[in-house]
Amino acid sequence: CAFLGECAEQRRCRELAEASTFYRAVYSEIEEVGWEHLVRFCGDLTSLSFRILDGKGKMHIIEIQLDKTHPKCPPSISADVPYMFDLKWSTHSRLKDVVQQFKKHLEKLQAFWSTLDDIDRSLWVVDPKQASPSVSYRQINMGNDCFIMLSINAFDPRSLPECRFIGSGPIVNLLRNRWRRNGKRWIKDKQFLENLKCLLETQLPIPPDVQKNEQQVECGICYAQSLPIGNPVAILM
């Protein structure tokens, strides 16, 4: 019994020593990344979340799950992006290597996000209302109860997107036929919206708020043109 008790104590001491080594290693690696980037962590330090800014100043969160044998086993990683990168890892790798690879991955995704930003800014997007960085589709109101759903290829955002037509009636059939007929006219070097307009052979609908602002500007111009020449105009501050 004494022998068994001694073995249990030795095992407990070894576990404490290993845990202590793990904590020291992780603390050291967090310092290399920067404590200001750490947004969440669990008590045993096996789960960490870091805040990373991309080249355009947008914030992204990468979640890292560490094995107790760290760094022998590669960590599990996740983030709100359309697809994850293949982590390059060795027994000499550290958390800063994960963060650096994630930053490079964010740079690769900039063209994808820029394409979606152009769509959100220029077209009448009805879904999703608040898109997360991982969402790759946009549903656009084309008018006359006709909608198109574009799925952008995150690996090749300038390529011809998948397009689904939603609605019924002659307008939907007309646009669907144009898409099929003009698909080969898509040119990667052209702007995405120019390609879309070329394939559908129609004016693309702008967002309602942009349309409203343009109408207000036009009304102001019309009003100014109707004022008598030479009359002073009061400016209210």
Rank of each mutant, 00 (worst) to 15 (best):
E32V: 12
K103T: 03
E6M: 14
H105F: 01
V39Q: 04
I206Y: 02
P207C: 05
N173G: 14
D127Y: 13
P161D: 02
N182W: 09
C163V: 13
P82A: 01
F102V: 00
D189Q: 11
H60A: 06
K129A: 11
S76Y: 00
I30W: 03
S90E: 03
N195M: 12
M59Q: 13
I64P: 01
Y27F: 03
S168V: 13
A154H: 07
L150Q: 00
Y137T: 15
Q211M: 03
L160C: 12
V210H: 10
D117C: 00
L200N: 08
M84H: 09
L109Y: 04
K58F: 14
T202D: 10
P228H: 00
L109P: 09
P205Q: 09
K188C: 14
Q130R: 15
R176A: 11
L174I: 11
Q100P: 05
Q216H: 04
I235R: 12
G55D: 15
V81R: 03
E63N: 12
E32A: 15
I221Q: 04
A17H: 11
P71G: 00
K184Y: 13
L160S: 09
N195W: 07
I166R: 02
L227N: 10
E9H: 03
C146H: 09
P161Y: 04
R121I: 04
A2K: 06
V126K: 14
Q191S: 15
C1G: 15
N144C: 08
P232E: 14
S20D: 15
P133L: 14
N153K: 13
Y223S: 15
F3E: 15
C73T: 02
V172C: 09
R176S: 11
S28C: 08
I206E: 13
V33M: 06
T115M: 03
A79M: 09
D120W: 02
G230A: 12
C42H: 12
P228E: 08
Y27V: 00
C198D: 13
D118S: 14
V233A: 12
L199I: 09
